[in-house]
């Protein structure tokens, strides 16, 4: 038996006549940061929909800690595209959302979240509305909402896609630091090669639709990786970009 936290085997999914996922095999070890890179429309988000139980696969296996995943389990802490903060809830109310859905009382949920505001750079903004925060702060609040659910694994769907380039770079560094400290088990969906290289232990590159895993890269460098333009990172980034731009090679 494998000791993987998440194990996807021969996963298939079609929508009508559109074959989105042909044959997805991937695994994530506990405490590992794994990224899925792929061209637009390759079905990256479909994988997350399968994992969160929003849709059911046509074939294949999804194992979490060696147990088959069923739609009703909700074992993942999911961070959707954008920040998906509720504009009508204050930041404190947004960050406790997952705990409230789990059935925790409002006071208990707040008591669990409040101590984390400092570390997430949100201290003093508990009672602000999302509209009052900058894009970077909103993403940090969204990540806080995600990790506080204490699920065995985080699913991040292009978390920084909507940010401007500079803020995105800052957020990637910040996430690299946070992850180095907490070692969450993460599956990150992104189309930003640099982001994947900067953050991941391993990177799966998907082919165009119908998607299968076209390439698999290890990133054998210590965390956190701050050195922009370090030769190893740049070389790997170039290699991955090459496979994405020239799928035939």
């Amino acid at each position: 038996m494998s000791s993987a936290r998440l194990d996807l085997k021969r996963l298939r999914k079609s929508f009508g006549h559109t074959h989105v996922l042909a044959d997805i095999n991937l695994s994530v070890q506990p405490g590992e940061f794994v990224s899925i890179l792929g061209p637009s429309g390759a079905g990256k988000s479909t994988i997350l929909q399968l994992l969160t139980g929003a849709i059911a696969p046509d074939g294949g296996q999804m194992l979490l800690d060696d147990q088959p995943l069923t739609p009703a389990q909700h074992r993942f802490a999911f961070m959707p595209q954008g920040d998906a903060l509720m504009p009508w809830r204050r930041i404190i109310g947004n960050t406790t959302l997952g705990l409230e859905v789990q059935g925790l009382g409002r006071q208990a949920a707040r008591a669990r979240v409040i101590p984390l505001f400092e570390e997430f750079g949100l201290a003093g903004f508990e009672n602000h509305y999302p509209a009052q925060l900058s894009g970077g702060m909103r993403q940090r609040a969204a990540l806080l909402r995600t990790v506080v659910q204490q699920r065995p694994m985080l699913l991040l769907d292009e978390p920084f896609g909507a940010l401007d380039a500079l803020t995105r770079a800052q957020m990637q560094r910040w996430l690299a630091d946070m992850w180095t400290r907490h070692r969450w088990t993460v599956l990150l969906i992104t189309h930003d090669v640099r982001e994947a290289v900067l953050l991941s232990d391993r990177i799966y590159v998907l082919s165009a639709r119908p998607a299968c895993v076209a390439h698999h890269f290890q990133v054998p460098l210590d965390h956190p990786r701050h050195s922009v333009g370090s030769p190893e990172l740049a070389a790997l980034e170039a290699r991955i970009l090459q496979t994405l731009l020239n799928p035939e090679d």
Binding site: Q49, T52, G53, F78, P80, A84, G98, Q102
Partner: peptide, 12 residues
């Protein structure tokens, strides 16, 4: 927002 619905659904 579809993302908010998807988020809540993923939370159970």
């Amino acid at each position: 927002d579809r993302n908010i619905s998807a988020l809540l659904a993923s939370m159970g």
